[in-house]
Amino acid sequence: MINKESVLSRTSKIIFLSICLIVTVFPLYWIVITSLKAPGTIYSLPLDYWPKEISFENYIGLFTKSDFGQYMINSLLVATVAATVATLISLLSAYVLARFQFSGRGAVLGAFLLTQMIPGFIALGPLYMMMTNFDLVDSKTGLILIYIAVCIPFCTIMLRGFFENVPDALEEAAMIDGCSRLSALFRVLVPVMMPGIAASFIFNFVNCWNELFLSVTLMNSDENKTIPTALAGFISSFNIDWGSMSAAAVLTVVPTLVIFAFASKFIVQGLTAGAVKG
């Protein structure tokens, strides 16, 4: 603390934070309201900022007219597995990149960074062909494998930053005690880096949870579709079903919101660990 906050700065802080909160939350509020209006009434003027009658018809429709429950399970499964495996694999590669000096290290890092610059559309055709040959079209395993590959580069770059902030001495002491490098990594380093790893995992999870494009291309049957595909399905050629889409959107956002509520401290903490120590 340098000095006490003046009344003026305190007021401006409150005003600024309130405006940010309102602007951020309003769209969320608006989808909730839209989802609770009875089908048809969303086109009534003047607009209702609170539905005259709360209707759960849109939500009921999701589960009776479509397999939304199944899609949620699929999304949860695919995103959890892919995010977990990707985080584990990235942990290993990030460790190597952070701890060893070897020729080609720059090239590896560059190759990871380059993946962030490639527009996905270039790779789509050949990727589809490859998945066909592997017999992995319309398969959750196939989607998981691709998601893992998509997550690894950024996750590695992120985790590498965290490793660099943990002194070598830690695992060296462990290795002198007879641990192998791998067990030193998991027994000594991982616990210290937990917030950073959690942040990386959440980042991966959110990306997989939201991914639309690959999922639409590769998944066919209801047993395998993920939520974003269902969302896109509410746009038919002559109708956009805003009510159902809003209901589905609310159900999609809620789990991530819950994760954030629990983990927002983690995320900042984790990233802090990875950032500059002054």
């Binding site: 694999i89 990235s90 290993l92 590669s93 460790y95 190597v96 590896v108 190759a111 990871f112 993946t115 490639i118 270039i122 790779a123 789509l124 055709g125 050949p126 990727l127 490859m130 494998l145 691709i146 893992i148 590959a149 998509v150 690894i152 580069p153 590695t156």
Partner: peptide, 20 residues
């Protein structure tokens, strides 16, 4: 340690990209 990452990114990102 590097192999899994390299294999995944190689197969599912670089191969389709170069081929594309």
């Amino acid at each position: 340690f590097m192999a899994p990452a390299a294999i995944f990114v190689g197969i599912f990102t670089y191969y389709p990209m170069i081929s594309g």
